[in-house]
Amino acid sequence: MNDPDREKETHPLSGVMEFWENVMADMEATAAEYREAGWTVTELHPGDVTPVPARVDTVETGRVGLDVLVPGDEFDAVEDVVGRAAFDAYDAYRAERGDVVFAVVVMQAEDAGEAVAVPVYYTKKEASPMLERVDEDGEMRLYVRPLSGDRRVVFVQSDPEALLPVDDGGDEDA
């Protein structure tokens, strides 16, 4: 049985990979600015970013936000810094290309002078259940994990507006 909607699905970065490379460069430049201001910055380079819950989810997990897969050494570094510092603020820089939302999120532990820079992306269509839940809950999370999936670091964005698509007043089902 063929599902026409399933056949049309592609990776969220299809057709916008060059823009993703620019987002990664922006993350590196932002991290450099933080370092110049005296912060210690851990930069993450996601292999994949998945909204949860997603349009294709069949099991309710209770998680709401973006699942961010990072290399094991980067996960170890972020897990270490989270063990030493309380991350209680963030900055986010957002851009959109078509249906794809990009952001550079900088989680901050101001008292410790530590920051974690995380570039993320998602398609509005795939993320629609997540976006509805974020709207209801008033917060969002980044679930950073290694490939093994046996550990996770969670960053909370209690005011997630900077990570959400700009409301263009268009038809969300289009």
Score class of each variant (00 low, 15 high):
residue 6 R to N: 07
residue 106 V to I: 14
residue 86 A to Q: 03
residue 85 A to P: 01
residue 71 P to G: 08
residue 26 D to S: 10
residue 36 E to I: 00
residue 126 E to G: 09
residue 26 D to M: 09
residue 81 V to I: 13
residue 139 E to I: 01
residue 134 V to M: 01
residue 174 A to I: 09
residue 147 L to D: 14
residue 35 R to A: 11
residue 57 D to Q: 01
residue 94 R to N: 04
residue 49 V to P: 05
residue 165 P to G: 05
residue 23 V to G: 02
residue 88 D to M: 08
residue 60 E to L: 02
residue 89 A to G: 11
residue 131 L to C: 09
residue 49 V to I: 10
residue 159 D to C: 05
residue 129 P to R: 11
residue 168 D to P: 01
residue 9 E to K: 13
residue 18 E to N: 13
residue 79 E to H: 14
residue 45 H to E: 11
residue 58 T to S: 01
residue 8 K to T: 13
residue 13 L to N: 01
residue 115 A to S: 13
residue 173 D to W: 12
residue 48 D to A: 14
residue 173 D to Q: 10
residue 105 V to Q: 02
residue 137 D to G: 02
residue 37 A to F: 00
residue 170 G to M: 02
residue 58 T to M: 04
residue 170 G to K: 06
residue 89 A to F: 00
residue 25 A to R: 13
residue 47 G to A: 06
residue 4 P to A: 12
residue 147 L to M: 13
residue 6 R to F: 15
residue 37 A to L: 12
residue 109 A to W: 07
residue 56 V to A: 06
residue 7 E to M: 13
residue 93 Y to T: 13
residue 135 D to E: 15
residue 37 A to G: 07
residue 119 P to N: 04
residue 44 L to W: 03
residue 13 L to A: 04
residue 125 K to D: 13
residue 56 V to P: 04
residue 18 E to T: 11
residue 118 V to A: 01
residue 79 E to M: 05
residue 91 D to G: 06
residue 46 P to R: 05
residue 3 D to A: 10
residue 150 D to N: 13
residue 128 S to R: 15
residue 118 V to K: 02
residue 122 Y to P: 08
residue 118 V to D: 02
residue 110 E to L: 08
residue 59 V to I: 14
residue 96 E to M: 12
